[in-house]
Simulated assay, not measured.
Amino acid sequence: MVSFQDRGLNYGDGFFTTARINDASIEHWPLHKARLIECAARLAFPTLDVMAIENASLQAIGDMQSGILKIVITRGSGGRGYGLPEAPSIQVLITVLPAVAHYKTWQEQGVSLAISSIKLAHQPVLAGLKTLNRLEQVLIKNQMNTLNCDDVVVLDINDNVIESSAANLFAIKNEQIFSPQLNNCGIAGVYLKSLCAKLAIEFKQISVEELLAMDAVFMCNSLMGVVPVAAITDTQFDITRSKALLASQFAKENV
């Protein structure tokens, strides 16, 4: 049960991570754990008992072979208005859900993207974190219902490319891999961080024009893995070539 006074409900005072369940284990758990620890530190939460969270998560998963694990952490109830409680009662909410069926099709066939007219505001203090403040994404998803696309490219208020509605973006140009800078907004995804250990990814400001001129573009997150982009508005990408370019990058880094 969650109190109606919970600060996560009232103020979005909390954070979360969403992980893929694979063979009854949490894929990329060390990175998800690092995300929870970073969010707690940057949002002035008490130190988390990550071992207890991990044990509770594994107990919730049981022998489930495939699915989704969502861990939501709030500061609990207390405090006066926005003021923080002196002794927060941290709430940990663990949910286990079925896997998303269409991601495999996306991986094989690619996706088409539109460009959202709803832009992300700048807040460097929260940049990169997966907080419970997701109203921008709610509005972006709602706008997607009026567009003929699988997802959207989301820009910031300066028209820099940031991410998709629920995934990170990266692209290849002239055998170099680029991904948008997330210094002012956006989420630093766990899956993208896992790729940074395998690929030489340069983070930089990317305009829409630069994105459209890339040789290949991809979306990624912990649940979908890597998904090639087949089209952004009227610009088409050959996903067979995109997959080959990415495979060559992996091969080059593992030589």
Score class of each variant (00 low, 15 high):
residue 106 W to Q: 07
residue 186 G to E: 10
residue 199 L to Y: 10
residue 170 F to Y: 08
residue 153 V to Y: 13
residue 197 A to E: 12
residue 182 L to V: 13
residue 164 S to Q: 08
residue 108 E to I: 01
residue 155 L to Y: 00
residue 94 I to F: 10
residue 152 V to T: 01
residue 148 N to Y: 02
residue 194 S to Q: 04
residue 176 Q to M: 07
residue 162 I to T: 05
residue 141 K to S: 15
residue 104 K to L: 14
residue 179 S to F: 01
residue 111 V to S: 01
residue 193 K to T: 09
residue 113 L to S: 02
residue 126 L to Q: 12
residue 160 N to A: 12
residue 120 L to C: 11
residue 176 Q to I: 10
residue 144 M to P: 08
residue 105 T to A: 15
residue 119 K to W: 08
residue 172 I to C: 01
residue 164 S to G: 13
residue 103 Y to L: 13
residue 162 I to V: 12
residue 92 V to K: 00
residue 112 S to Q: 12
residue 107 Q to A: 11
residue 105 T to F: 10
residue 201 I to H: 07
residue 167 A to W: 14
residue 171 A to W: 12
residue 192 L to G: 06
residue 188 A to T: 07
residue 197 A to F: 04
residue 101 A to Y: 05
residue 108 E to D: 06
residue 192 L to K: 14
residue 145 N to I: 08
residue 92 V to E: 02
residue 128 G to P: 06
residue 183 N to D: 14
residue 135 L to F: 14
residue 165 S to T: 10
residue 112 S to I: 15
residue 200 A to G: 05
residue 154 V to C: 11
residue 164 S to L: 01
residue 186 G to V: 04
residue 102 H to M: 05
residue 208 V to E: 14
residue 194 S to N: 12
residue 121 A to Y: 04
residue 200 A to I: 07
residue 182 L to I: 09
residue 213 A to P: 00
residue 180 P to H: 06
residue 178 F to A: 10
residue 166 A to G: 13
residue 201 I to Q: 03
residue 149 C to L: 05
residue 211 L to K: 03
residue 170 F to L: 14
residue 209 E to M: 06
residue 159 D to E: 11
residue 152 V to M: 08
residue 196 C to N: 13
residue 192 L to Q: 06
residue 213 A to H: 14
residue 155 L to F: 12
residue 117 S to M: 01
residue 95 T to Y: 15
residue 143 Q to E: 12
residue 194 S to K: 04
residue 96 V to C: 11
residue 104 K to D: 14
residue 100 V to T: 03
residue 91 Q to K: 07
residue 149 C to A: 15
residue 94 I to D: 10
residue 153 V to F: 09
residue 151 D to A: 09
residue 171 A to K: 01
residue 210 E to S: 14
residue 204 K to V: 15
residue 211 L to R: 10
residue 121 A to D: 15
residue 129 L to Q: 05
residue 198 K to R: 11
residue 179 S to N: 05
residue 112 S to K: 14
residue 112 S to G: 13
residue 92 V to G: 00
residue 136 E to S: 07
residue 154 V to H: 04
residue 134 R to T: 03
residue 101 A to H: 06
residue 206 I to N: 10
residue 97 L to H: 03
residue 127 A to V: 06
residue 99 A to C: 02
residue 100 V to C: 11
residue 139 L to C: 09
residue 124 P to T: 01
residue 148 N to W: 00
residue 167 A to K: 05
residue 208 V to D: 09
residue 175 E to W: 02
residue 111 V to C: 04
residue 117 S to D: 12
residue 100 V to G: 04
residue 166 A to R: 11
residue 114 A to Q: 13
residue 147 L to P: 12
residue 184 N to H: 03
residue 141 K to H: 04
residue 139 L to M: 07
residue 102 H to Y: 15
residue 196 C to S: 15
residue 172 I to K: 02
residue 152 V to R: 06
residue 99 A to E: 15
residue 107 Q to K: 10
residue 180 P to S: 03
residue 132 L to W: 05
residue 133 N to G: 09
residue 184 N to M: 02
residue 171 A to R: 05
residue 138 V to E: 07
residue 213 A to S: 15
residue 184 N to L: 04
residue 107 Q to I: 09
residue 113 L to K: 06
residue 204 K to C: 08
residue 206 I to P: 06
residue 149 C to S: 11
residue 123 Q to P: 04
residue 161 V to Q: 05
residue 155 L to M: 02
residue 114 A to L: 02
